[in-house]
Structure formats: C-alpha cells, structure tokens
Design a protein around this nucleic acid. Structure first.
Lengths: 246, 246
DNA sequence: ACCTTTAATTGGTATAGACAACTATAAATA
DNA sequence: TATTTATAGTTGTCTATACCAATTAAAGGT
C-alpha cells in the first residue's frame, strides 16, 4: 500500500490544491512511478476524511496538466514523465535562457512610441495609427548574441514602459506588477537566410541560416499584449515546445 | 437578455456536454461576442433546471479550452477568438495540409523493421535493438514536394503497419482503429541549409534554407508513439502553433 | 459632492449522496 | 472445460446545499 500524505483542513490553501501538490511531490520524488495505479477516489476521500468531489477536483486538474490519466471502470494512473518540458510552457526569452542555465541580457537598440501600421494594428487588435511601443533589441545569452528582436506592444496595457523594465522579464512584470494574466501565444516558425542587418547585429557570415520566430502573445481574456519578430542564430538556438492534441 | 438554449435531460449525451456545445455554438454564430458577460452560474442552473455544479463543469471545460474566462465576484466572459488556431492543436501532416485547403500525399521511399539505435530507443522508451518501423517519405501538398520525413514508430503499438495505412492520417488510424488516445507532442525547430539528399529529394537549390522539425508524439498515458524528423522546404512552409502559459 | 457602510451578486470551495457505465473477478451453469 | 451470470469496485455524471471571498451597487451619513 502507498504511503499517504496529510492535509490541513484549517490551512488557507484549498484542500484540492494540497492534494495536487502532494501527488505531484510523490511523483517527482519517485514514490509513485509511471503507470502505477493511484488509490481510488473513494479511498482518498475516506482516508483523508474529505468529500469525493474534492478529490475529483484535484485529480481532474492533474489529468488536465498531464500528470495522471484515467480509465473508466479501472482506475487512475500516473502518466510517464514529460521530461524537462514540464518547466517550459510559454516563456519569455529571459525566462527561457535562465531555465537553460544561461545568463540572459539585452542590448537595447531602440525604444520608441510609434503609430501602428496596418499589419501591427491587426496583430494587436487596435486601429491603425494608434500609438504603440516599438522595441528593438539584440538578445544575448552568456554575452553571446543569440537573436535580433523587434517587439511591438500595446501602449494602453503597458503604460510608462522604461528601458529599466526591459532588462528583466517582461512577462513577470506584466503578471506581478500590472496584474494582468498571460494566457497563450500564437507562434510561427520559418527558416531564412541572414539579411545584411542580421549579419551585422549577430556577427554571422553570409548565407548563415536564421530561425525566424513570430509570436503574438495574448492575455487570458484574449486581448493581444505584444507582437514579436525574432531572428535567431540557427547555429546556437533550437526552439522546443510541447503541443497538446485537442 | 440573451437567447437561451435548451437541453435534453433524457439524451445520452451528458448535460454538461450539451451546455458546452451550446455555448460554443453561440460564440461561433455571433450570438455572444468577445468580452460579453454570460448569465451567472446560478441563472443557468435555474433557467435550465439543473444543478449549479453541472453548470460549473461545463464552464470549467470551456475556460480550460480558452473559450471563456472568469473573474471572481464579477462574472464569466467570452474570450477573444483564437483565429484559425482553434482548428489546429496537434495535427499530422495529412490533417494539417487538409486544414490549409491543400491535397496531401506521400511518396514512400522506404518502410522497414529495423533494430533501434541508442538515440531512437531513448526517444521511444524501448531498449536498444528493439525492432521498430522506419518510414522514409517525401511529403507532398498539391503534388509539390514539401518535406523529406523519416519516422520511427514503436512496432509494439502499431502491429501490422502497411504502406496502405500510411496513405491516410496515421493519427486518425491510431485513434479510431487501434483505440489509443494521442496526448501531446514534444517538438523542436531549427534552421539549417539543405544537404545533398534534401536537395535531390525536394528539388531545391544549393544553400536553400530548411526548417528542421523533430517531433516525439506521446499517447495520453505518456507512452511514446513515434519520433519524426522532417526537413521542410522553407520557401513553401511556415509552421504555426499555439502555446499556453503554465 | 464625497466617503463609508451595507447588502446583493458573483465565482470558489467543499460536502454527502445517488445512480450510470464500465472493468475485472468470482461464482454458477451448461 | 467453457461459457454465462452475478458481484464488487472503479470512474463518470448529477443533485441539492452550504459557506467563503471578491466585487459591485445601493443606501446612508457627513
């Protein structure tokens, strides 16, 4: 029989959340292995002296997050590890490089308020000529140039943007200081050959391959936050992500 | 006041599912617009004569799927459209090209059972030298070569794979005929220059850029199904996807 | 006109129970 | 022995209710 965990009913943390964290911990510490069967929902309810629906809320969340899977009439099982992907999700350059153990930095080439042209206005769901931020930067990891990046951000959502703020993670700034919730991003990938500007900025040779990534980031409520066009040095950068079916 | 829909309590379809479909339909047909507030959970429950918890189950699913967002103390709102991304998700080449209105086809270069080398064995979570399928194909859209693709699939999961099956969507075959559920894929993107083989197979010039995509597809329970390495013609192909925060 | 308090409304958490649909095992039957 | 039938255990769906926490709007007081 499995070791069980304890929950604290008087804690301000919701019970279902405590269960989630406990099961995740058991998986991560190897007390539960892939394809192990979990105690049934009724067992959890009885042993922890809580309602079965509360157990279901916790397990539902873990199933949605990919930690567990269910089979009707049989039981609930531990899914195989998602490797390091667990950490990723949608991340900014700053967050991503830190996760890879590198020190991210930026060289700001330009920070301006400009009127949106038609393409940008369309991406950010604003009317043409609305004032927006244009930010052009060279992105470095461990002081090596990795990408040339041009970002357009809604000035409505990001009032008083400064060069100082740009030195840190913009996603975390938006979430912690402005209090907006980032939801998802739509991203496109293509392969090109370095242009003159990219050759100079990234100090690479003629005909070098470039990974061109365009990303529009949306808040949880669906409003667009930024549109970013990044040219990555293909010799130093591989993009990885996880995509769910349905 | 909103038009309301009706549900059929005697239907074999779960009530929460009927609600989900009805709300999705209202959004898609323009009866509900982005940032519109929905009736409160208690209203839905009263008007449809069902329990509030059932309403919550439906709304939870729609929030997770990105159709709605909630604000405690205020209400539940319609999120902005995710554009065409809605259709995508994780798709096979066949499904993707159809969605883009093109006619997918393949030219099979090789279909063999081979012993897994260390890299492939690692990707598919099998032991070295386990027999696996190796499938090499040229992928075409509207009869134009788009990509050179090498796929490795677990022979355990896909018994009796034939060239005939490969002409259709392998994902749909796995889901409908074998009854396995595809869960997610881990994907990497890099930009390279065409090799001799790729130049010949895709009939492109020297120094042409190639978008190299490597994908490992997993079942819902976390078992790896296939590992695919695809070299796409960069002049004809841009990959797009949506990534969720957390 | 402005501020504070109160009440009403909303989503968030949790309970206790019921029946349905499905799976695996054990018992009964042919 | 082989097949069918019961039975117990599991997740899936749904009900009816209660209270909490955040927000908004109304009422009241200055």
């Amino acid at each position: 029989m499995n070791q069980l965990f304890v929950i604290d009913k008087s804690s301000p943390l919701p019970i279902y959340y405590q269960i989630e964290e406990s099961i995740k911990r058991q998986i991560e510490e190897g007390e539960l292995h892939p394809h192990d069967v979990l105690p049934s929902e009724r067992e959890y309810a009885e042993l922890l002296e809580i309602s079965r629906m509360t157990v279901r809320q916790a397990i539902n969340n873990l199933v949605n997050a990919g930690y567990l899977y269910r089979q009707k009439g049989r039981g609930t099982y531990v899914a195989e590890k998602k490797l390091e992907q667990q950490l990723l999700g949608l991340t900014s350059f700053t967050e991503e490089m830190k996760a890879r153990g590198m020190m991210p930095s930026s060289k700001l080439l330009s920070l301006e308020l400009i009127p949106a042209n038609e393409k940008i206005a369309n991406q950010l769901h604003v009317t043409t000529n609305t004032l927006i931020y244009e930010i052009i930067r060279i992105r470095l990891a461990d002081n090596m140039p990795m990408a040339l990046e041009t970002a357009y951000m809604s000035a409505d959502l990001l009032k008083g943007l400064t060069a100082e703020i740009l030195n840190h993670s913009i996603y975390q700034y938006v979430e912690k200081h402005i209090g907006l919730k980032i939801g998802y991003a739509k991203q496109s990938f293509e392969s090109t050959i370095a242009s003159e500007v990219e050759m100079a900025s990234l100090s690479i040779a003629k005909h070098s391959p470039i990974l061109l990534i365009q990303r529009t980031t949306y808040l949880e409520d669906g409003r667009p936050l930024e549109f970013v066009k990044s040219s990555y040095r293909a010799d130093r950068y591989t993009f990885t992500c996880t995509i769910n079916r349905h």
